[in-house]
Nucleic acid binder design. Structure first.
Lengths: 247, 247
DNA sequence: GTCAGTTCTTGATCAAGATCAAATTGCAGG
DNA sequence: CCTGCAATTTGATCTTGATCAAGAACTGAC
């Protein structure tokens, strides 16, 4: 997707300004009353920039902070016993990472940058303090986790229900929608992940994913040039994906 | 599974005694320091008994309480546009229900009893009060949600990776393990759900599920008589399921 | 630009599981 | 016990997507 949402960031050092962040409405402080947002902001640190392929979190390491991607995209995956990657999904700006770590205090899967990536972090000890004081943040954290859970269940259900092309269509439709919510052009983007990553995410082979793209192209629903995608008929994709009426 | 874990419950009316509950170690108060457990207990109400097929929660209704199944089992599912059921999973005693409701304040899926079922409930307004006061409960709620998330992601990953018999094997292995943790015989149980429910949960057809049972029976790994299951070779099932070394 | 390496596309074959269709078993009610 | 209905098993066939195998296109380095 090649995502750059680096807003102009001047004057802030350790404490980051959420106020001016383009992602604010999607991110944690977006739903909080102003005083709570300010309190949270003072606990937010800026993570260092990561290059493509670098690990944002490693499975099994202590969950020492809540992380939110600020710009770029990432791949969430686990390593199976056979050494293959089980791709859980892809992370876009404004999305939290490693929430399943709350289960054990250690991250449950790997998250690797797919392109240059920056992120914010709230150290756990500060988060716990804030949770004591801020009722809105408590509600917001539960909402965030509930949302992640709902999403994971939805993805599981879709995988069980849908055939190959339906899965690819839904993948694209979902990506479109998430890009749109972040203010990116929803029908014209560059995929940051490989066909193999998409395939492993959707429980398919990369050949089948490629063929699905080929079909959509032939039908005139898509323009595909390697990783550059133009969605010409979002309605057709949505229909195949079985989505009710999400644009 | 035909689950009866009705411990002897005398004297308690609205407030339920978690102290003597057989499920305590699996349930919310199990991880809490004693004073917090007592505070939580005072907020717990007993839900009325439900008969087979009755709804414990309906998708879209307001999430007015946190629910935990006390005895019996239930099916979590969504209704698709075509009117079919998308089965997300099955709920056993000690497991919370409807956590994805935190996302929107409304339950995200249907939960129906599969056999006579009883449950406990913590009204949301009381839960919010308690979360303000009890740091252990705050941590525990995050843990609970993190666990549910991890579980959902695991299920999604398995679905993407495993073939039909592997999925059925894993389903049985998982059930075994969960029954064991609740003190039920893990290798001898009665399924409370139909083949069709299992199939819809695993993204298969009921015929394929039936054939998988047939294969396992022929291999001598299982004894199957309708819904009565005896696991004779848990190791073989676990191996097929790709589980490392979980007994 | 050219080159090497990777990623992606396309084609041919094959197998796992879906689908269609009975037959069988189990179970509640009379 | 018998009856009727629903759930399950079993069988035959067909379709989808996996697998194997080339090619083609893209990428980054020189």
């Amino acid at each position: 997707m090649t995502i750059r949402s680096e807003e102009i960031e001047t004057g802030a050092h350790a404490g980051v300004s959420c106020r001016n962040c383009a992602l604010k409405p999607l991110c944690l402080p977006g739903q909080l009353p102003a005083p709570e947002a300010r309190a949270l902001e003072s606990a937010v640190e800026r993570g260092r920039q990561l290059g493509p392929g670098m690990a944002l979190v490693r499975a099994g390491t202590a969950m020492d902070a809540l992380l939110v991607v600020r710009s770029g995209s990432a791949k969430r995956f686990s390593l199976t016993l056979e050494g293959t990657e089980q791709v859980h999904g892809f992370v876009l700006p404004g999305e939290a990472v490693g929430l399943e770590g709350f289960a054990t205090g250690r991250y449950g899967c790997e998250v690797n940058a797919l392109e240059p990536l920056s992120y914010c972090r709230v150290p756990m000890h500060k988060l716990e303090q804030l949770l004591e004081q801020l009722p809105g943040l408590r509600r917001e954290m539960l909402r965030l986790l509930g949302q992640a859970l709902e999403e994971a269940q939805r993805l599981r259900g879709e995988l069980a229900e849908t055939d190959a092309r339906g899965r690819v269509a839904r993948f694209l439709a979902d990506l479109s929608e998430r890009l749109a919510r972040r203010g990116f052009p929803p029908y014209d983007f560059r995929l940051s992940m490989s066909r193999a990553d998409i395939a492993r995410h959707l429980g398919l082979t990369l050949e089948t994913v490629s063929r699905a793209f080929g079909t959509f192209k032939r039908e005139g629903w898509l323009r595909v040039r390697a990783r550059d995608i133009s969605v010409l008929r979002p309605d057709a994709l949505a229909a195949l994906a079985g989505v009710p009426h999400c644009a």
